[in-house]
Every structure is written in structure tokens, then in C-alpha cells.
Write a protein that binds this DNA or RNA. Structure first.
Lengths: 222, 222
DNA sequence: AGTCTGATATGAGAAATCTCATATTGCTTT
DNA sequence: AAAGCAATATGAGATTTCTCATATCAGACT
């Protein structure tokens, strides 16, 4: 974790990733820029957060751990987005866990210094409502899917969405958490896809050999 | 579905269920009062809603149906709460389905007549953010639980929460949807509880015979 | 190269959950 | 009361998913 204080660099970020769309007042005095390495925590589960983050570059994951040691990956967080907004509002005191997947660069807003301004800023509040709604809708859609279809269908979908140039190469541990099944079971279903000739294991990932078959499986859904 | 226009009755409702906590301007000119019977739709899935509702009495359920005919019960909505707020913001165009469980009385706000006022009302926006956050947190928690524990554990919990005077008497169809399992499986696990002597089937519902045992099962969670 | 270690993968059997066919129950209607 | 019908309940076997033990692999260290 590195905090950037150099004014020149900060100016540069402000120009490339402006905040004026979200705030009706000048938020710059309350901002630091923080960079996280991959695997670092942005918010620690159960702790009271210090900042409202705005993720400008990178990808993180939001998770919730259960008493039995199991971890639910609730969502992937992709730039640009706010992180820690629920805690800001007081909807929950302590944070859910958020961990960087790739290196992440964030504006860290010192809310304790400008809470009043923020909570009276129509522009920000309106945007936040929209953001919260969209997040909720996405989550809900995801939950509902997870419960309604066997892994085969959901995985086919997931592969189609996340593959790049016909190559699927996500980390199995992450995916199994996101799809809400055990690592073992994910591998099992994936192996089935290979056995059926839909995928082919290569050094750089799984190559999609039979796109149509995969689509057909995914569609037993729609 | 009945719309109440009688000014006297409306005044009465306003006095008992005031809206001044949520709005910074006078919202009354834009309100009707609507009553729904149980099983009636407040929002029809896939349709564009006309109103923002504020549920003042009653209990409803929010669901989402899947291509394979399966229905996910996303949440129970208990008074007091807003319904249709995401659609108001434009976060989604068409509504999720909302159906009354008990008879429901709502303030129906004609948003097309006061959208500007509403979307510039700090008081309302702040409250809405909070409301959305809490809803999201609840959903997430529920979702995470649903995936992390077998039905036995979740059902024990659910029974403890929803039972009244040691009697559990929810509708199985609703519960199975909410807990994300088939009706059959719910009955199966419930029958096990009876066989183990934790519950006893009576005319008025299932009587909790062994509270401790049920708690112990539910706690294999926490 | 050898070995340690953590991450990743596989095997096998058990448990959870689903599907579908068939009963049973409780209302209406006649 | 009989018949019809929808809601509710049960049985049995198939699938999906899990658990846990073991195996393989890749990089770090010696």
C-alpha cells in the first residue's frame, strides 16, 4: 500500500479521472491517492473503515466470510466504482472484506473531514442511489441465477462472459467462490467440459473448442 | 385493488403514518392511497411502474422469475418501506415482481408529477441511500447464508425467527422459494425434524418441542 | 539436483437436493 | 353426500454437490 502525496501526480490523476460528475462541491482537499498491490485489503472485514474509496484503476473482490470458514464472494468490483459507501451512510458499522485482485489505484476520501458536505450534496446522493440500486440489481440477479441453475449452466455462461479470444483463464479458487460451489466441484464440471470436447486445456488457459455447444448449455437458461 | 380518495380518511392516514421524515417538501399533493388484497400484484414483473409506493401496512414479497420457470423469492417486504424506488431512479426500467402476502395499504406517489422535486430533495435521497444499503446488506447476508449452509441449518434458523409462541406456521411454498430449495426438499427436512422429535405437527402449525435442539442446529452456523 | 511447501488437481464415496409420479387433503359445486 | 379440482404431501430414484484423503506440480531454498 502506497500513498501518493505528490501534487503533480495528483493533478494528473484528477485530469484523467475527474470527480466533478459526482460531487457538487470541491472534494479535492479531502482526497489522498492510495495504491494497493494485488491481494492487499482495501477494507478489512469487521473493521471500521477510515475512507470512502473511489476505485479508478484495477479490480477487486467483495467477500463475506461465514462462521464455518466458508467464504462467499459477493461481487467483483471493477473501476470505476465507489467502495465503502454503505459504511459511510451508517447502514453498517463495520465493513465487508474487499481485497484487490489486480493492483488498484483509489481516491481515498477522508469522510470524517467532510461528512456533512457529502451528505448534503444532492448530486452525490443521487448518483449514489443509482449506484447502489444497480449494484443491488446485479447482485440479486446473480443470487437468483446461482440458486436456479446447476453449475454446468452457470459455468458455461461464466466462461462465455469472461473468456478472451476464446481462451478462458480465470483462477479456479476465485470462480468457485463466486459461483458458490466447492473448488472440487468446479474442477469436476470443468473436466466434464473438456471430456465432452467443449474445452481444451492449454498452457495459457482453457481454449473454447466448441463455442456452440457451450452456448447451447448456457441457453438452457436465458 | 381499491383507491381511496376520501379526504377525511386520507388525513387520518397522514396523521398515523407521516411522511415528513422522508421528504423535505410537501408530498401530499402527489399521493393517492391504494389498498391491495393478498395475492394481488403491486408491481408486475417486466412492466413499467406508474408509482413509487410507500408500504404503510402489510407484508409483500419481491420475486424474480427465471427462464426455466423457477421463481426466486428475493425478499419479504414489511411495512414501513418503499417499493419501486429503483425504478424511480432509472436504475432499471422495468420492475421486479412484487405481490401482496397480507392485505397491503400503500401511499402511491405519482412520480411523473414530482420527479424533479424528489430527485433534488436531500432528505429523501439520503434516506433512500440508507434504505437501499440496508436492503442490499440484508439480501447479501441472506444470499451468502443460503449458499454456505445446508437447508437443515437455515431452516432451523428460519423457524426460530418466524415462530410465534413456539408455533411455526409459514406457508411451505413461500418458504421453499425464500430458502432457495424445492418444496419437496423443504418438506423432507421438516419431516426429519418431526421424526427427531424437535417439532410436532399440530392443526395450527408445527409446535417446537425441543427448542434447544433446534438452537443447536441453527448455531452450527453463527 | 534434492527437498520442502503451498497451490492446484484428482479419486471415491457420502450427503444434499432435485425430478417426477402418485397420494392425500380440503374446498367448491352439484 | 358425491364429484371435481387445486393445493398440499409423500415415495423413490436420479443428479448435483460436498467432504476428505491423496496426488501432482511449481517455485523457493539448500
Amino acid at each position: 500500500m502506497v500513498t501518493i502525496n505528490d501534487c503533480g501526480i495528483m493533478e494528473d490523476y484528477y485530469n484523467h479521472f475527474p470527480l466533478s460528475d459526482y460531487f457538487g462541491f470541491d472534494i479535492h482537499p479531502y482526497i489522498s491517492i492510495i495504491q494497493f498491490d494485488s491481494e492487499e485489503s482495501l477494507l478489512q472485514e469487521g473493521r471500521i473503515p477510515h475512507f470512502l474509496y473511489y476505485l479508478i484503476e484495477g479490480r477487486a473482490k467483495l467477500f463475506l466470510s461465514q462462521g464455518n470458514g466458508r467464504i462467499s464472494l459477493i461481487n467483483f468490483l471493477n473501476a470505476p466504482c465507489f467502495i465503502g459507501e454503505m459504511e459511510l451512510l451508517g447502514a453498517q458499522e463495520v465493513a465487508n472484506g474487499v481485497t484487490a485482485i489486480t493492483p488498484c489505484t483509489c481516491y481515498a476520501i477522508r469522510v470524517n473531514e467532510c461528512k456533512d458536505k457529502i451528505l448534503n450534496d444532492t448530486k452525490f446522493l443521487r448518483y449514489l442511489c443509482l449506484f447502489l440500486s444497480q449494484k443491488a440489481i446485479g447482485n440479486t440477479y446473480n443470487y437468483s441465477k446461482n440458486q436456479s441453475y446447476p453449475l454446468e449452466v452457470r459455468l458455461a455462461n461464466f466462461i462465455l462472459i469472461t473468456s478472451c479470444n476464446r481462451v478462458y483463464c480465470e483462477r479456479h479458487t476465485e470462480v468457485s467462490e463466486f459461483l458458490g460451489v466447492t473448488y472440487r466441484h468446479l474442477l469436476y464440471v470443468l473436466a466434464n467440459f473438456v471430456k465432452s470436447g467443449y474445452l481444451k486445456k492449454t498452457k495459457s488457459g482453457y481454449y473454447i473448442q466448441d463455442l456452440d455447444a457451450l452456448r447451447k448449455i448456457a441457453e438452457s437458461n436465458q
